[in-house]
Design a binder for these strands. Structure first.
Length: 227
DNA sequence: CATTGATCATAC
DNA sequence: GTATGATCAATG
């Protein structure tokens, strides 16, 4: 068994964080779970965030549901990325909860989306469903920050979506809206409701939403990093 | 068969 | 309910 990576202490530097990232690269999820003394679920059907939380623990990310980056002292957000054998993302990437109310005054620069995506540690993980969870291998994690073009695309979509939300057009937003950023339901189930601005500026109840990165966006950033 | 809309676990 | 970690699975 590997030594020295079963830490829960937050990394104090980027170099320290990346050393830990290198140490878990190439390991199967079962090996990682064993090292961390975490029980493995049979699959992800009822444990969708399991691998993400396992990696968090391995790297010493601060747990919890706080609206901050995973490594606040380093300004780095952690995201796992399920990949096919062709190195293509298998899922969209959740970014953050979408504010539906009281969002006047929020700009792209002060938005949660930009804050979360300003610097991301991506950890690729084999994600194909025919590979048993236990055998899926962790890939080489890498640091990424949006380049000017990516930042502009994200800003465009964010502004379009936030405008619609502010103007009471949230029910007109579908997952098709946005080139690289999507707004989709984000809740425990379809019955969950939250307040939002309606068509006439009134208050309506709607499904909570979250921001997600489209797969082609994460695919492209993978390409730019590895080629 | 890719995508959209729905859903699962957990902390507070 | 809000927010974190996400993937599932019905549907077109």
């Amino acid at each position: 068994m590997q030594q020295g990576i079963n830490t829960i202490v937050a990394p104090t530097s980027e170099a320290e964080l990346m050393q830990r990232v290198e140490k878990i690269s190439g390991l199967r999820l079962s090996e990682l779970a064993s090292i961390m003394n975490v029980k493995m679920p049979p699959d992800l059907k009822r444990h969708k965030g399991w691998s993400g939380q396992l990696i968090e623990q391995c790297l010493g990310a601060s747990a919890g549901s706080k609206q901050i980056q995973d490594f606040p002292n380093l300004g780095i957000e952690l995201k796992t990325l399920p990949l096919s054998h062709r190195m293509e993302p298998l899922e969209t990437t959740y970014v953050c909860y979408a504010p539906l109310l009281n969002n006047t005054g929020i700009t792209w620069n002060s938005s949660s989306v930009r804050n979360k995506l300003s610097r991301v540690l991506w950890i690729p993980i084999q994600g194909e469903r025919d590979i048993p969870l236990t055998d899926r291998v962790v890939g080489s994690g890498f640091l990424w920050a949006p380049n000017p073009q990516e930042d502009q695309l994200l800003q465009q979509d964010w502004e379009e979506l936030m405008d619609m939300i502010s103007l009471g057009k949230i029910e007109r937003i579908t997952a098709k809206t946005g080139q690289v950023l999507q707004l989709r339901p984000k809740a425990a189930n379809g019955q969950a409701l939250t307040s939002a601005v309606g068509e006439n500026g009134d208050m309506i109840q709607t499904r909570p939403r979250g921001f997600y990165l489209r797969k082609h966006f994460t695919f492209n950033l993978l390409q730019s990093v590895f080629y």
